[in-house]
Design a protein around this nucleic acid. Structure first.
Lengths: 189, 189
DNA sequence: AGCATAAATAATAA
DNA sequence: TTATTATTTATGCT
């Protein structure tokens, strides 16, 4: 039912495999090849403008016409959607991208204006945790890897860090734990 | 000293601002504009192939010639490096990218082969010094930041580390001292 | 199709 | 450079 069967993130950018039969290029009167090509180019054009999926999604919400979330952009680029959906989104993205590129030519100012409310959001400085903070966080993590919202707020207050910073710390910590486990499994039989 | 002053991740992809004077396009006989343009295009070419900075770094380690880490690729793309460094890395990346694109044309198989081969050149494991060793090294460093060859050999033997490891430790330590002094001077008058 | 968040990737402190 | 934090992308659930 979905256009692309293989969920690899690279697939969309890779040359078409030889085995593609020409039978399936149209479904319900929709030209799939054309959509595939557009999706591939859309991603490259987006990256050329230095935009993230999130930014495109937010910009679409800010302008007139249908709004789409980051997830929707992601799914469109990967064509992890039905032909009918793709057909519906394509003209919206096409129109939007043309205007974005137009503004880009006239300088970054124009583009960032178009993109939206918080365009040049500067990356947050990397936090460095004190050994004392890390000790407490690690101790908590050993007992509970998924603290509740209230618990995170409490930790943030007690340690005097931003709550968001604490949240991200737990995200990353869980990932690190996962990786460790994966490695151990690879070594074992 | 670094090529790009603004650390925003988008900066490298944005059109040059109007205010750029033409005076600063060359430094030490190095054409900065050319490097800036190359870095910008390199990122787009990398993304068009669907490659990550990590993959490029690993692939470079696997092939002949100089090896660079993901961080090095990141810094090159952002031009968060000196003109001299950029000048040195540029031809390596250029040559590598041309081959990657060539293989891409011949199908994904060829590209993944090029990317994925196991690194032949294994990097030396990072040494971890015992607290006791560090104490002795630091004590020595306080008196003399440039030990003679004989002194280094003696230290290496006494602490049971590779002589090269000791030599590098002093290099890094001097570097760290330099940075500390620079920072203190900036803070003061 | 959006929300929440896991996974992947980029950026940066050490 | 490596280790770790921050951001972006992808996906399970509804």
């Amino acid at each position: 039912q979905l256009i692309n069967h293989v969920p690899s993130s690279l697939e969309g950018l890779m040359p078409n495999t030889v085995g593609n039969s020409t039978e399936s290029t149209t479904v319900d009167g929709i030209n799939l090849d054309e959509i595939k090509e557009f999706a591939k180019q859309f991603k490259i054009r987006r990256l050329s403008l230095g935009l993230t999926q999130t930014q495109v999604g937010q910009a679409l919400s800010a302008t007139e016409g249908p709004a789409y979330s980051q997830s929707a952009i992601c799914r469109f680029e990967k064509l992890d959607i039905t032909p009918k959906s793709a057909q519906k989104i394509k003209p919206v993205l096409e129109r939007w991208m043309l205007e974005a590129e137009e503004r880009y030519k006239n300088g970054m100012q124009n583009l960032t204006e178009f993109i939206g409310s918080e365009p040049s959001k500067k990356r947050k400085r990397r936090t460095s945790f004190t050994p004392q903070a890390l000790e407490l966080l690690n101790k908590f993590f050993e007992r509970n890897t998924h603290p509740s919202g209230a618990e995170m707020t409490e930790l943030a207050d007690k340690l005097n860090y931003d709550r968001e910073v604490i949240r991200v710390w737990f995200c990353n910590k869980r990932q690190a734990l996962k990786n460790t486990i994966k490695k151990l499994k690879q070594e074992g039989p």
